[in-house]
Design a protein around this nucleic acid. Structure first.
Lengths: 141, 141
DNA sequence: ATTATATATTACGTTAACGTAAAGGTTAAG
DNA sequence: CTTAACCTTTACGTTAACGTAATATATAAT
């Protein structure tokens, strides 16, 4: 049997559809060296699973407010050109820094969540106040 | 005794320094109606605690990748012009949506964290491999 | 009062991250 | 083989979020 699993190759618009972005964006990410898909003999882009995974990482970074440059540095970390110990150590350091950032961001998100909950509570209280006042005043129609 | 606590008023550059942004940015946020500080009789901006708190929210939103427009909608939620129940309900809905987003973002951050940790592990393993190889080969100098 | 800073407004410049349009090749379907 | 639906590159346009510079007051320090 020949090797073939589920979905091995994707076209640019397939990925665009899946991630809800434009093909232009994907090409743009390639311009910035965040992606590097193979091509058909007719020069059209074909994305492998690994490319799709990278795009996923890109989108994740974006959703979190990272610039493409930062994302490039982050996912560059996963590239497979570690030939020197120095490189690995640099990557490790970088990763550790990013981990710190991520954890800080998580903490901030939790603060935001708390803020939101507080505002929500206030709104609820205010609602009840108004309802109470209306009840008191007997404002039917 | 006259009422006066700790730090009641801030100048634009004080806030800029505190949040590590430029005065220009702060003025820009004001242009976008995200801030609305009082003025001195000489027309210079004075920021009260509440203004500082708002700026804090703005920065938090930014760090999380929200656009100023979105942030405006979010912190607009905390403004005190809720005179109608409908308004309150709308705000509540909005807040709940945002809460969902925040929780999703938290989940994503956790995924990123896991990714990072995986990559880190791989790098560590690779490092050991190389070290092991060097030991084997006895590559001193 | 006189500087030295800080701030205000106005207005043009810049960068990232695409959007959009033109002009043409490629692939899948009939 | 001929389209229709995609895809390619090239290149100029756009928007958000400021940067920067010029010119003019304001406030703080001496």
């Amino acid at each position: 049997m020949i090797e073939k699993k589920s979905k091995e190759k994707y076209s640019i618009s397939e990925l665009a559809g899946e991630f809800n972005i434009s093909p232009r964006s994907i090409r743009f990410y390639e311009e910035k060296n965040l992606l590097n898909p193979k091509r058909t003999k007719g020069n059209q882009r074909i994305y492998a699973k690994s490319d799709r995974a990278r795009l996923k990482l890109i989108m994740r970074g974006k959703r979190f407010g990272y610039s493409l440059e930062e994302i490039g540095e982050m996912i560059g970390m996963t590239s497979t050109d570690f030939d020197e110990i120095g490189q690995i150590n640099k990557s490790l350091e970088y990763g550790i820094r990013k981990l710190k950032e991520i954890r800080e961001a998580k903490a901030e998100l939790e603060m935001m969540e708390q803020d939101m909950l507080k505002v929500k509570d206030k709104l609820m209280i205010r609602l009840k106040e108004i309802e109470g006042a209306n009840k008191q005043a007997g404002e039917g129609r």
